[in-house]
Design a protein around this nucleic acid. Structure first.
Lengths: 241, 241
DNA sequence: TGTGTCAACATGTATATACATAATGGACAA
DNA sequence: TTGTCCATTATGTATATACATGTTGACACA
């Protein structure tokens, strides 16, 4: 009843072990107590200790070897979680008015050049969109998107003049896999015009390729004026605590 | 014995449920079978079903409510995992020779300007480093780093002419928390000179702030010539499968 | 009709138990 | 000395069981 922190046995053991690892008290390579010993120390059953260790292993903090025991892992890659919200959320979190304008919309067949973006057989129908997201009265981001109409045929019936393609797609094809590529380029003539910035301004590029279980769904390129935007990724040892 | 995929009961149930969710067969909001029903369907105990559902909930695919059941979650933010390796690994994975040169090294006291980077009381000793990482015979990345000597006093005794500060720190302060900020700028005079690129070339900036349990440890800014570098982040529903 | 109470229900957490599996290290034989 | 085999050991997975906890909805009562 000290400060009365209500916590389950599971998470008490978890944070105890995490603390020892994160503080450096147990450096990488250190062998932690065996399951039975942990159970004894905390007055619980082996199953409980096992579940805690399994969770630590899943989050990458420890490495488990049969017969040998569990060891504090070497932090190999700094794996950080990058939260990519949709643009409207992003703009509103800056306390700015959001608006969106469709600049072009065309249906065409996939050509050889599109294989770079969407890995799709040629002459499949494709929806090619360009739109501009505004924050306040200034352009915030340029979106260039290809949608695979074989995977999402309903997209053909949507004109995207009112609803942004990103938000529309997430409601149609939830839980798809994605790959993001982040890079930096000087604004070309088209991007400069669309974003109302001087040519050769540094821009942050985020490209996203999305697959569902039925194949490639969409490819998007977001172009942000570099000095106005920033991506944030965090890493906390042990994951979401 | 179709294709004889050896899998535990646990992961068979897991991938079964994941499949139903990812394919869209169970859309967001759909209530999945109760634990007891799942157990019956798969011929296992409720504990096993419970563990599977718990894992799905932890990875964000489902949401659980007592008495009501478990529901497919709405994919809120596209959370992707960004793997940030150290520079040497990155260069070698491009099959290029790696080398590293320390350009400047000074110990000084923290001033007001440093609060922006490392949240540290003034007049604390700081190690200020600048170095250049080469891939083959061309500059690959400019590293500007501050190390909090109160947190890592041993850094004062290291001259960093042979070992890169990133690699050195990770062995000293494993499992620290970090925040990354990714943006894009035009190369200034100093960056252009260090990286041997024209001024105003678009550059990708990755800034990393690192804390251990004993406070701020280090701040780094990596400047990459934009056209030569790309960050990749992936998202797979259900996590590491 | 409105409201309070309570039983039923689904999940949350923990235990004891059982057997499988993989790796270590030592016994033992060549 | 060297190589093979096997018991030991720690983890991996699964079961049956128990009780706690938060919700819902039905039912009784005002």
């Amino acid at each position: 009843m000290t400060t009365a922190k209500e916590a389950t046995l599971h998470q008490r053991i978890l944070s105890d072990l995490e603390g020892k690892i994160v503080s450096g008290e147990w450096p990488p390579g250190h062998r932690l107590p065996f399951e039975v010993d942990l159970a004894a120390q905390h007055g619980c059953s082996r199953m409980t200790a096992n579940k805690v260790l399994t969770q630590l292993a899943r989050s990458g903090l420890i490495e488990r070897r049969r017969k040998s025991g569990s060891f504090v892992a070497q932090p190999a890659a700094q794996a950080a979680v990058l939260e990519i919200h949709d643009i409207e959320t992003e703009v509103r979190s800056l306390r700015l008015a959001y608006s969106f304008r469709l600049a072009s919309r065309m249906v065409r067949n996939a050509g050889p050049a599109d294989r770079i973006h969407l890995d799709l057989p040629e002459s499949r129908p494709l929806l090619d969109l360009t739109c501009i997201h505004n924050a306040g009265d200034r352009p915030f981001c340029l979106e260039q998107r290809l949608i695979n109409l074989s995977a999402v045929p309903e997209a053909d019936g949507e004109d995207f003049s009112r609803v942004a393609p990103g938000a529309w797609l997430i409601s149609r094809v939830p839980w798809s896999a994605a790959e993001h590529r982040i890079s930096s380029v000087s604004a070309g003539a088209d991007a400069a015009a669309a974003l109302e910035i001087p040519r050769h301004t540094a821009c942050l590029i985020i490209e996203r390729r999305t697959w569902s279980s039925s194949g490639p769904v969409t490819f998007v390129r977001f172009t942000y004026p570099g000095d106005r935007h920033m991506l944030i990724a965090r890493f906390t040892p042990g994951g979401e605590n």
